[in-house]
């Protein structure tokens, strides 16, 4: 067990926890923040994507001990009411089917646009191919990213 002061969505959250615990489970089990999803646990599906200092990372494969002073942003912290341009674009294109993968898709997309505000199709493919959607919403995700890139 070890104590951590984690910076999550702009707030300091304290946890006393096994250092090997992946951030995904810290968020879901210890901090009651279920927006970040479990899909594979091995960095293969992207459902658990969060931002660490603005970069998209797979929280299922990121032990809490590795966070240090890094700032974490989750889907809950992207905006309170869905007003982030990526969330707005997702609503505009009505992207979701089952919706389970979409937190991760949105977090990957938001990180991409922060780095690269006008991504090409190839840039989008590169940044997003780590996020699986069994419902097959890839076309709309791409359209939504393009819409968000205009804002």
């Amino acid at each position: 067990m070890a104590k951590y002061n984690l910076k999550i969505n702009g707030k300091i959250r304290k946890v006393d926890i096994d250092p090997s615990t992946p951030m995904l489970w810290v968020l879901r089990d210890h901090l009651d923040m279920p927006g970040t999803k479990y899909g594979c646990g091995m960095a293969q599906c992207g459902a658990c994507t969060v931002h660490l200092d603005g970069t998209a990372v797979r929280s299922c494969s990121l032990p809490v001990s590795a966070i240090g002073k890094g700032a974490i942003t989750t889907i809950e912290g992207l905006s309170e009411n869905g007003t982030h341009p990526v969330q707005k674009a997702w609503i505009e294109h009505d992207v979701a089917q089952c919706g389970y993968c979409q937190s991760g898709q949105i977090m990957s997309a938001a990180a991409l646009l922060k780095d690269n505000p006008k991504p090409t199709d190839a840039d989008i493919d590169n940044a997003m191919s780590g996020n699986i959607c069994r419902c097959g919403t890839y076309l709309r995700i791409k359209e939504a990213i393009k819409t968000a890139s205009k804002n």
Binding site: T36, I75, S79, G82, S103
Partner: peptide, 28 residues
């Protein structure tokens, strides 16, 4: 065309799914 009635909840990561279900004292 009408928008998904739960679209906003999905994009803001609200606890909608079985995986997100939780009560006090719950074991895994």
């Amino acid at each position: 065309s009408q928008k998904n009635s739960e679209g906003l909840k999905v994009v803001t990561g609200k606890p909608l799914f079985g995986m997100d279900y939780r009560v006090d004292g719950m074991l895994i």
